[in-house]
Amino acid sequence: MNLTLKIWRQKDAASKGGIQTYQLGGVEPDMSFLEMLDVLNQELIDKGEEPVVFDHDCREGICGTCSLQINGEPHGPDRGITTCQLHMRMFKDGDTITIEPFRAKAFPVIKDLVVDRSSFERIQQAGGYISVNTSGNTQDANSIPIPKDKADAAFYAATCIGCGACVAACKNASAMLFTSAKVSQMALLPQGEVEADRRVLAMVEQMDKEGFGNCTNTGACEIECPKGISLENIARMNREYLRASVK
């Protein structure tokens, strides 16, 4: 396949960036999207140019490092996957592909396609945990039976990989899906219920501080989420927060 790539290039956080166009040949359908970028980078290095910098690590869709807005959608046109799992068979010979960083005030660009998602870290640090010490002297694991459906729901909320696609897809750059997934996981489990109020108030406060937008329930996040995190989590967080704030 031959492709035209329009890629956002930006020297560093302080510099102004812009789109640059590259022609790339020899792309095979079995390649992953990131392997296609590897090929481009190899060509750039051979030509003595600086390769395109992008975030990636596990390349199997679980670490949440890779990002990229591809043709106007986070993680590209396929569903239920991250960019590293996107394969070139989704594209046709002669296609033009626009590749941009995730955009949000709370995700400033560091270089080229790399953004700083530490705002997500701070939301979790504000309360995304259960306050038990790590001594191991906790009670036996089976002393707290948890209904399977609750445990499963907590698990599905917990499968969030923190990639930021929800923010990138949202027209308001809202982080509600991410925050609510964490809140939900803990709120659904008896272990986490104890400090549920404190947690949801603290996490939402931090989320607001980071400069994310508000949720307007467009549902784009759920569709683009590589792990299919459900909007139900946002409703649960709305509920939890309402309950906590009227208390």
Binding site: K6, W8, I19, Q69, N71, G72, E73, P77, T98, E100, R103, A104, K105, A106, A169, K171, N172, A173, S174, G211, F212, G213, N214, T216, N217, T218, G219, A220, I223, E224
Partner: peptide
């Protein structure tokens, strides 16, 4: 207020943005 906040949350927009693939027109144009 919400609209203004939401605009501020993405100061630099996308060159290519295809929200029609993931959300309904009415939801984006309230």
């Amino acid at each position: 207020i919400l609209t203004v906040n939401n605009r501020k949350a993405r100061p630099e927009g996308y060159v290519s943005f295809k929200p029609s693939t993931n959300s309904k027109w009415s939801s984006r144009n309230m």
